[in-house]
């Protein structure tokens, strides 16, 4: 892990430059990209990641402004600070991209993901699954005599934790939406 290096002249403008740009520590960042919702725009964003060898941990996309035809793409990605800066700069130069925000560095943000879990079982295991679901505040959205479908909203960590608990109790299928995120405050 390399130390924070502050070169003369690089720090007086903004605290943004204080980050060790060329450190080799891998960080996880959540990046929100506002794009014009035109055909192929998602392919451009994904193509950028595959073409330049960047990681996508999670990706969600939906139109958020129907009148202005704007979609919000939320990408969770991993890389060294230099790679993260490159990703943002590269995203920024895609023509239909209006705005790129790094929610991880631009102050506190909230992240939520929704997941559906199908858990099969009977007897003691079935009761235990229901009990844990209650603790996690998961909702039952479908039920048969041998199965439940739980709906859970939370951070990716919480969803991972719930999945780990459900696995020995008969978890057979998971569907996750990927992360949606917003900066806190006004």
């Amino acid at each position: 892990m390399s130390a924070l290096k502050i070169k003369k002249g690089s720090s007086k403008h903004s605290a943004y430059n204080l980050r060790p740009n060329f450190s080799d520590v891998t960080e996880t960042h959540t990046i929100a990209v506002l794009v014009e919702n035109e055909p192929g725009v998602l392919a451009r964003v994904i193509g950028l990641f595959s073409g330049r060898g960047y990681n996508i941990e999670s990706l969600t996309v939906a139109e958020v402004d129907h009148q202005g035809h704007l979609s919000r793409i939320t990408i969770v990605t991993k890389g060294t600070p230099q790679v993260i800066e490159q990703i943002k700069a590269q995203l920024g130069r895609i023509v239909p991209v209006r705005k790129v925000n790094d929610l991880t560095v631009e102050g506190p943000s909230v992240e939520r993901e929704l997941a559906l879990f199908k858990v099969e079982g009977s007897g003691e295991k079935r009761v235990e699954a229901l009990r844990l679901a209650d603790i996690f505040r998961a909702q039952v959205v479908d039920s048969t005599l041998e199965s439940f479908v739980f709906q859970l909203t939370g951070t990716p960590d919480k969803i991972d934790a719930f999945a780990d608990l459900m696995r020995p109790l008969g978890l057979i299928e998971v569907a996750r939406t990927g992360v949606a995120a917003l900066a806190r405050g006004a």
Partner: peptide, 21 residues
Amino acid sequence: SRKAHVDIDPSSINKVVKTDI
């Protein structure tokens, strides 16, 4: 050297070489 880099494309800056200005 201290390196200054003027470029119209922000993605060119700090892509391969760390820039001081």
